[in-house]
Design a binder for these strands. Structure first.
Lengths: 338, 338
DNA sequence: TTGTACGCGTTATCAT
DNA sequence: ATGATAACGCGTACAA
């Protein structure tokens, strides 16, 4: 260990009387090493407090010890939950989390992503919806040899490259819950196009209605864009109907709360006059009055699993779960219709 | 340019008939270069589509092209706004954004930060409150030669290392606004200890009250912790008073909305029965009914400026603004008292 | 099982 | 103003 500075692999090699390569093998857990040598080197590593230099490894390996979350315009709570999950997944490892948003509506979207991957060379990327269903980006990852995992609502890749949740089942359950309470006219506020999750949620809704022998009144299905404002607009349409619904299922919490506010603003009581169910279980949903009955989306668990899949070898990743359960959280915004 | 792969500095040097070092000088905008050579090399760079390898530069320079946001448990909207600001600040550069939370209540907090800095070697770090007022962490940055900028509510560093907002002035203005409307009994819901911002906000509140010749009733000052729940608790205390306030200033929006919900839950009308003012101007504040009058905190601008200071040389950073203005946003939650 | 020599792509030193 | 050569710290053929 010449002078000060942090010890390098050379210092370890010298102190342990072995070659660099042997130390390198220990670091990378190579199987072809005698236990004796391994133990000796590990002792020296601990003794010297040696920590491999990530920048040097990045140069040699042509990939950085970074997991990147690539997203386009998600809401704050979603994004932070994903970040939390990824950080949990890489906890204890040497990886760091990088965050990079892109606007997939610009002309050079794909080039921007490529430039990012070429520059930072992340070890792996977590693709957040709706980018996760963009095949061009996935192809890009494959082409560049960048590991990736998609957070998706449908199974559009093999087990090693996807984490998902059973949105459809969960919404079916939530809708069945409303039906069980006695609701037959149930409004649906949909999510934005270009995302797969709203399609799945709508499918679950339809399945529950059909299973109960209920018809799907097109007038009760309103478009939405996952924003508070779109929930307001949709709810306004819904309650202005001649024969308005007694309950509303909104494809996310923000729209559900927009709907709540709108109903109350026009003099209705919740849940007495109208029941409302959301999706996500954001902190918001327990911060409104009445608190919102909603479907808990296991987003932190999904992100954690995604990160773990990225830092594990492919075969191990394929063995990890890819579908995490969503489930209904009963709170105060649902009662039987009057 | 032997074979395929991306062109390297060697390819450029060969094609331009100069040495590697000369190309390096061009990349790093070294002043001691003849214009002719510079132009020649730049032409070749453009021609070949050469992009410097960040991992190699990181190894040589001993610092990665990464800006890290270091934080401890802030709320989602705040965190996302900071990230947006930093990303705006590094837009067009080669830098990436890394996010790393720490729990400053654990024993090995400082070691964890040190390990992170040693491992990832970020070019610079943005210190978010409350970590930004932790001198041990700042010392650590100095010791390791890591550039840093603190996001703070007080000027606890020189211009090159801080971005701030005039919380105190803004709260004084907001409180004066309530007083102007005719309120004299104004409740204050404070923020958590260990943060500097609540102290500044309280100081602004007191200054406005004093300036108006109003006394500060200790019974009207309730503790809070920037959470929705703490706003609920504080408001419950406040409205249970024999002589309750006619207005409440909460040190952030979440608590303000907790207070709103609480007041409405106990049958009060807002703003008719009680006026409420928050701080932050989160999206939440315009998504409640009535919409919340609040102080807009220029968090995105602060973060953008912080990132710009990090990637500029110190002398240029010192010339950039360090104080960004907060200002009152009048919405629907304030009217004169009855 | 272990070691030698070289490559990764850039910057720094010290000449000229 | 420019260039030859050595770092920077680790991984990998290939040899032993």
């Amino acid at each position: 260990m010449k002078g000060e500075g942090k010890p390098t692999i050379n210092d370890v090699a010298a102190a342990a009387n072995v070659s660099k390569k042997t130390v390198s093998r220990v670091i990378n857990k190579s199987p072809l090493l005698s236990d004796k040598t391994r133990a000796k080197v590990e002792a020296v590593i601990k003794d010297l407090g040696f920590v491999p230099n990530l920048q040097a490894r990045a140069l040699a390996l042509r990939r950085n010890f970074i997991i990147a979350a690539i997203h386009d315009n998600p809401n704050a709570q979603f994004l932070v939950n994903v970040q939390q999950g990824i950080l949990e997944g890489i906890e204890g490892s040497e990886f760091g989390l990088m965050v990079q948003p892109f606007d997939r509506n610009t002309e050079d979207f794909e080039q921007k992503v490529r430039a990012f991957l070429e520059r930072q060379r992340p070890y792996g990327v977590v693709l957040l919806p709706p980018i996760s269903s963009d095949e061009a980006i996935v192809d890009l990852c494959r082409e560049m040899g960048t590991r990736y995992v998609r957070m998706s609502s449908i199974k559009n890749d093999d087990e090693a490259h996807i984490v998902s949740s059973n949105d459809r089942d969960a919404v079916r359950e939530a809708t069945a819950y409303l039906i069980e309470k006695g609701h037959t006219r149930i409004g649906l506020i949909e999510g934005p196009e270009g995302f797969t999750s709203p399609q799945e949620r709508r499918a679950g809704f339809e399945e529950a209605m059909t299973a109960a022998g209920l018809s799907l009144d097109p007038a009760l299905v309103r478009p939405g864009s996952y924003t508070f404002e779109s929930g307001v607009t949709a709810a306004q349409d819904l309650i202005a109907l001649d024969h308005p619904p007694t309950a509303i299922f909104a494809c996310n919490d923000e729209m559900a709360i927009g709907a709540m506010i709108t109903c109350r603003r026009s003099g209705m009581l919740i849940p007495e006059d109208i029941s409302i169910v959301g999706f996500d279980d954001t902190p918001l949903s327990s911060h409104v009055w009445p608190s919102l009955t909603t479907v808990r989306w296991p987003i932190v668990e999904m992100a954690r699993t995604a990160a773990q899949k990225l830092i594990e070898p492919d075969d191990a990743a394929a063995q990890m779960p890819w579908m995490l359960p969503s489930n209904l959280v009963e709170r105060g915004s649902v009662v039987p219709p009057k």
